[in-house]
Design a protein around this nucleic acid. Structure first.
Lengths: 117, 117
DNA sequence: GCTATATATCATTCGTGACTGATATGTCGA
DNA sequence: TCGACATATCAGTCACGAATGATATATAGC
């Protein structure tokens, strides 16, 4: 239907949906705090809580989310669990983001469409 | 207060907040569709509507958001407004995201913590 | 001037997901 | 086995922001 005038290349929805979920995983101050803390190396949950200031249950919830998504990896050591970034390219992504924020995307802080929850 | 045991390097909150806003700008299927469409070159709003399938007002709202944030730039030509990506590094960011999704972050699609709105 | 087309703005609705507090699981030392 | 510590899970609350539909602005052609 809608005839032959369909020469427009539609957006690839599944791909876009995947990207959306990845960026949504990153679009939260708590999760970004955790990821930022882990850039220096692996940390236990307690250390993450101390560094980020998140509540224990909140941090744990976000860690589960990040872990399921494959962005961080946890390893049990005694009664501690140590988490680390699962891919160095995650660090690259953050660096690239900071570069953008430093230049063209500098209007982001002033954008009132969504706030700093 | 809280004594001298403050050797912990706390997360830099303003920086994290900025990154959060940038990623939140990217964490939406509609906006990502628009950005993806613009990777091929500049497009008018009408073309963007046709390609993404978004409603006109919805697309316009997202374009304003993306424009204010500095991620896209619009130029008036006659009664049309043509938008383009304002920085090629935005494209790099998307490529990097796809790389991550292809490998370590492949759990993202299965992550049920947040959905594909 | 008037009409049609292109884009922008505004108010409202409604679902998603972040946080809290309490509780459960699990691991170590005595 | 028991108590203390580390982490995980769960239910409930509440605010953010995405989409819609109607309306406003703007530009071009007649």
């Amino acid at each position: 239907m809608s005839s032959d005038a369909e020469l427009i290349e539609r957006v690839d929805l599944p791909t876009v949906a995947l990207r959306t979920k990845l960026f949504r995983g990153l679009a939260d101050a708590s999760r970004l705090s955790i990821l930022d803390a882990l850039r220096a190396g692996s940390l236990s949950v307690g250390e993450i809580v101390a560094i980020t200031g998140l509540s224990q249950s909140n941090a744990s919830n976000h860690l589960r989310c990040l872990s399921e998504c494959g962005l961080v990896a946890g390893e049990q050591r005694g009664r501690f669990v140590h988490y680390r970034l699962s891919d160095p390219r995650l660090n690259e992504l953050l660096v690239l983001a900071d570069e953008l924020l430093g230049e063209t995307a500098c209007g982001v802080d002033a954008c009132g469409n969504y706030g700093a929850r």
